[in-house]
Design a protein around this nucleic acid. Sequence first.
DNA 1: TCAAAAGTGTTCAGCGTACACCCATGT
DNA 2: ACATGGGTGTACGCTGAACACTTTTGA
Lengths: 232, 232
Amino acid sequence: MTQSLHYKKYAKNYVAIDSIIFGFDDGKLKLLLIKRKFEPCMGQWSLMGGFVGENESLDEAAYRILEDLTGLSKVYLEQLYTYGDVERDSEARVISVAYYALIKINDYDCELGRKHGAEWFAIDDVPPLVFDHRKMVDRAMSRLKRKTIIQPIGFELLPEKFTIPQLQKLYEAIHQKDLDKRNFRKKILSMGVMQKLDEKETHTSKRGAFLYKFDKDKYDYLMSNGNMFDFV
Amino acid sequence: MTQSLHYKKYAKNYVAIDSIIFGFDDGKLKLLLIKRKFEPCMGQWSLMGGFVGENESLDEAAYRILEDLTGLSKVYLEQLYTYGDVERDSEARVISVAYYALIKINDYDCELGRKHGAEWFAIDDVPPLVFDHRKMVDRAMSRLKRKTIIQPIGFELLPEKFTIPQLQKLYEAIHQKDLDKRNFRKKILSMGVMQKLDEKETHTSKRGAFLYKFDKDKYDYLMSNGNMFDFV
DNA sequence: TCAAAAGTGTTCAGCGTACACCCATGT
DNA sequence: ACATGGGTGTACGCTGAACACTTTTGA
């Protein structure tokens, strides 16, 4: 399987994964970046990445790399785009498959992150990045904006239980504009995938806001019946 | 640049391009497929593909491969998705970056195609394909459906001059459902990118239908002002 | 009692959708 | 004359967007 009879006249290439890791905290959309600990570009800020192993698929490699950095295995992860300019990496020709991940920032293993020299940056405050990583981030932002319009993946960035004002802040951070809270509430609730709990969150306001859970069963049901977004 | 000091402990992989080539003819959306002339899977139907060279980007490789088969160089070509399952190619581990192309079927060089053993297949009549090429086709169809809703790329599949009924047939073929001709007309014309000509097309009807051109300048203008689709 | 965030309804405009008839022309 | 495809206008329902006040409670 690893030996090729008919392809051997062709060149092989390094294939890597780079991950745009989104989190949400303090009302801000954030990215997890690492300070490169190896050449080339040692010491500069970079996306988390790694090479694709011989016996793992691209998705498996992406999950492995993400877990290495965050300790998390069950997260939203989606292939974004593949970057293959000849000179994109200053060291060698490397083709990089970019993935983006949405993680619940509180579940993230800070200790692991520290080992990799990882830090969270607000999306509006991202430092210069190595190679073409900035392009990857921009593309991930566009994709995230579009996706959150047509699929409720925003929940992946919030804790299990969350309030509607929290969810709204998340959407405002993603779409970089303020939303009307009455319209937002109406729209979110009308989707029928919010499960209201009897608890309140009382840290951010005196009155307290009701907590909700994302009702995944109902979501799957609606999707399977094609009721939700029949143009996806 | 091709020698790597720091990466050499990592494995290299074959990286290929596969192209889903769309055309439109006889009221049907079609795919250009080739009969493989080499092992593995010689003689079976396949997407057009090839390996990425050492000194070309992915986009360049995709254009080269497309031109090899069709003789066309200025066509709509967009990266679709990258497929990297370990066993996806029965011969060796090959990572394939899929692209999809929209070509004006009349501009296509049949002679070149014949040399490659290429044939057009209606989208509803695609034969079994090698490896994971069927998955690529399905993903390309989804992307095309979505794209044509939010961007007028359908024009890429029609000749320079075309009638509104022709354009409607194209959209019906892509979305696999009938459309109301009054609504279709209204919507298309309201976008303001159709340039009406003084000529008529009189082959398909006795009365004749007015020919139009896609007004690219106006389209670019509208896009640059953000007037058209500000959610893209 | 006041500050700060949560929660609640209505109105309007624009857009997609449904729908039926006349027109022009070649045979 | 008739068959074939081209071309046209209106009415309705839904959805997104704008908009202001009351409630709760800790400090």
